[in-house]
Design a protein around this nucleic acid. Structure first.
Lengths: 149, 149
DNA sequence: TTATTAATGATTGCCATTATCAATAATAAC
DNA sequence: GTTATTATTGATAATGGCAATCATTAATAA
């Protein structure tokens, strides 16, 4: 199920370690287990789902720890929150995955990842024209997917 | 504080009335009061804020009623939810206001409304290329505004 | 006037995420 | 290695926004 390749796996580990050292945090067994489970999971997982995956082999790891570590992964830059409507937050792996936007089906709830450099460029121009320095953006297009239209 | 002009005010009322009739709902004193307060408020208000504004003159109107009516306003098309990050939902007046996107300052939390037809067109093409029929979209660009950069 | 039923207001429930706190364990200092 | 420091953990409670509930009220139709 791991979509991420081995090189990205290592990069993610290293990025997180660097962040941990920089901030004076600590490497723990739980953190390693959660990281591995996260990187081996599908592209978009919720805290609850990840906790469930881990519980089988490591029932001693609590939900709060999983949640806290997902937040840490986001801070360190190896993960990113995606929040769609009222759905619960999903955590996306960033290492080895280009930025993308989402086409979200209002019927089945599924989403497609898309990317368009021209749109990105226009966004930057738009920001500049408003004396605004952009860091990141989120574009969600809602509608009907091929299966539901 | 009302940004909306008188014509839009009337259009909003009429649009809501039409929706209410169509669905067999009812016009109530509270609904009128909440609608007027909403239309007279700033462009982006939360349910809590609106309830507070109303409470002064109408302490008998409960929070749940305000919340329910804001949801109704959204259903009828005269309002729209905007959800930014973890902030609580804000309700935006749609009548008399073109669709727009948001430049959101990560430091002060303020946001600027922007619009770009070229981006919209590219979004439609992007959707079409993915066999996706778009209904609406949300573009949020995060960064630093002129005051905070 | 009466019947129907949407709406209200107060409250409770729900659910995702955070905060708390005592116990544990990772790192640094010695 | 030993000790001190303090980040982390796990269990649980708290928080907060919003929805659901339910008895009561009131808007519309008959």
């Amino acid at each position: 199920m791991a979509i991420i390749n081995n090189r990205d796996f290592i990069t993610a580990r290293e990025t997180l370690s660097a962040y941990i050292n920089e901030k004076g945090l600590r490497e723990t067994k739980q953190r390693q287990i959660i990281l591995d489970a996260f990187l081996s999971s599908g592209r978009h997982i919720t805290a609850t789902e990840l906790h469930k995956r881990i519980s089988g082999a490591h029932p001693e790891i609590g939900f709060a720890t999983v949640q806290r570590n997902l937040n840490l992964f986001c801070e360190s830059g190896i993960a990113e929150e995606i929040k769609i409507g009222r759905q619960k937050t999903r955590y996306e792996q960033k290492i080895g995955h280009e930025h993308h936007d989402h086409l979200i089906c209002v019927k089945c709830g599924d989403f497609i990842e898309v990317h368009d450099d021209k749109i990105e460029n226009l966004q930057n121009k738009l920001a500049a024209a408003n004396n605004f320095r952009p860091i990141r953006h989120k574009l969600e297009i809602y509608g009907y997917c091929g299966n539901c239209k």
